[in-house]
C-alpha cells in the first residue's frame, strides 16, 4: 500500500493505491499498451484486462483461483501493434492501432460465436496521425498532413460493423491528439503540431475555433477537456519537454479557454511530487484523476480538482514502470512494466 508521504502538507488530499492482483503477459516481447474492457461471453460477463505486445493482443479474465486466464489472443504478423484505442461504453470489442513509426491501420478485435474464431477486421488504413474512441460508438481519426489532411468520424454498430462516415472540416495544421469534451457530447477538441487548439461541432462537422496556445513545448498532447460555465478547461501534457527541475517542468498543465473569444490562459500546473526529478513520460486522464509514468520510473497520480499529487508508486524490485492506465470503472489503476507484468491497484 503506497501513498504520498509529506509531513509538511498534512492538509493535502491523499489517495491510496492498494495492489489487488498481478498478471504476466507477453512473455516473448515488450508490453506496448494495456487497458480494460467489459466482455460478454456465453459463460461469463466480466471486466477483462487487455494487453498489447507488438505481435499480439490478449484478453485476460480474472479466475476464481485468483489468477488471470487468457480468454482470446489476436496475432499480428505483418504490422506491429502501437496502441489500444479505448472505446467508451463499448463491450466485447477492442480497437487497436498498428503501424511502424506512425499508425497505418486501425482494426477492431472481437470473437465470433458463429464460427468460434477471433476476428480482426480492418477499419481504416492510411497515414493516420491521431485516433480517439468517442462515446456512442464513434471513432475519430485524422489522416495525411496539412492541406491533404482528412478528419473523419466513423459510427459503428455493437458488432463493430461500420455504419456511417462523417467528414470534419480539416484544420490547416496536422492533428496530434483528439480529446472529448466532458459535458458536451457534440463538441470535439484537438491539439495540432503548432500547438493550436481546434474545436469542432461533431454533428455538422464545422470547425468552430482555432486557438493558438503559444506554448514553448512542441508536441504537447491534450488528454481531456471539461466544459463549465461557458469555458473549456483543457488538460495537457508535454512528453517532449526537456528534463529539468520539477518547478518548471510540470507533468500536466490545465489551460482555460474561452471559445467565444478564442482567448486562453494557463490555469494550473501539476508539479512532480516532492523529491522526484525528471519529467512526464506517458499517462492517462480519467474523470478527475491523472496518472503519469515519470522518467524516474515512478507512477504519480494527481487530483485535477485539487491540483495536487495524491499518490506515488515507486519502481518495484522487478523494474521501473512503463505504462499507467485507468480501468473503465475509474477505481482501478493498471501499472505496467516492459517485461509484460501488469499490476492492478485499487485507487481510493
Amino acid at each position: 500500500k503506497v501513498a504520498v508521504e509529506d509531513p509538511v502538507e498534512d492538509s493535502q488530499r491523499k489517495g491510496s493505491l492498494q495492489m489487488t492482483s498481478t498478471l504476466k503477459s507477453c512473455s516473448a516481447s515488450c508490453l506496448v499498451d494495456m487497458g480494460t474492457v467489459w466482455w460478454e461471453a456465453a459463460d461469463f460477463t466480466a471486466l477483462c484486462v487487455v494487453t498489447a505486445c507488438e505481435a499480439s493482443v490478449s484478453l485476460w479474465r480474472h479466475l476464481e483461483s485468483g489468477h488471470w486466464g487468457s480468454v482470446h489472443t489476436w496475432h499480428f504478423t505483418k504490422v506491429p501493434v502501437i496502441q489500444i484505442v479505448p472505446l467508451p461504453g463499448v463491450q466485447s470489442l477492442v480497437c487497436v492501432a498498428l503501424g511502424g513509426l506512425e499508425i497505418s491501420e486501425i482494426r477492431f478485435l472481437f470473437y465470433s460465436s458463429e464460427d468460434g474464431c477471433v476476428k480482426q477486421p480492418l477499419v481504416k488504413t492510411g497515414n493516420i496521425n491521431a485516433v480517439l474512441g468517442l462515446k456512442n460508438r464513434r471513432l475519430v481519426s485524422s489522416c495525411g498532413s496539412l492541406q491533404d489532411q482528412e478528419v473523419e468520424v466513423l459510427s459503428f454498430s455493437e458488432t463493430g460493423r461500420s455504419k456511417e462516415r462523417q467528414a470534419l472540416m480539416p484544420p490547416e495544421e496536422t492533428v496530434l491528439a483528439f480529446a472529448e469534451v466532458d459535458g458536451m457530447q457534440e463538441a470535439l477538441i484537438a491539439l495540432t503540431t503548432t500547438d493550436c487548439l481546434v474545436v469542432w461541432n461533431l454533428t455538422t462537422g464545422q470547425l468552430l475555433r482555432k486557438v493558438p496556445l503559444g506554448f514553448s513545448y512542441p508536441g504537447s498532447v491534450c488528454h481531456k477537456v471539461y466544459s463549465d460555465s461557458g469555458l473549456l478547461f483543457v488538460v495537457l501534457s508535454h512528453p517532449h519537454a526537456k528534463e529539468s527541475n520539477s518547478c518548471v517542468n510540470p507533468a500536466f498543465q490545465v489551460v482555460v479557454l474561452n471559445p467565444k473569444t478564442a482567448r486562453s490562459a494557463r490555469l494550473m500546473s501539476l508539479s512532480l511530487p516532492l523529491g522526484i526529478t525528471g519529467r512526464y513520460l506517458e499517462g492517462e486522464v480519467k474523470g478527475a484523476s491523472a496518472a503519469a509514468v515519470l522518467t524516474s520510473g515512478n507512477i504519480a497520480v494527481w487530483d485535477l480538482f485539487w491540483g495536487q499529487c495524491t499518490a506515488l508508486l515507486p519502481p518495484d524490485s522487478e523494474g521501473s514502470w512503463s505504462l499507467a492506465r485507468w480501468s473503465v470503472t475509474d477505481t482501478c489503476l493498471l501499472a505496467g512494466q516492459k517485461d509484460g507484468s501488469v499490476y492492478i491497484y485499487s485507487y481510493t
Binding site: 472540416m169 461541432n201 470547425l207 468552430l208 460555465s229 479557454l257 474561452n258 467565444k260 486562453s264 490562459a265
Partner: peptide
Amino acid sequence: HSESDLGPISINWFEELSSEAPL
C-alpha cells in the same frame, strides 16, 4: 481569471459559433 483576461464569456458559445461557422 477575470472576464477581462479571457473576454466576455457566453454559456451558449457552442450554438453561437455553430451558427456563424461555414458548413
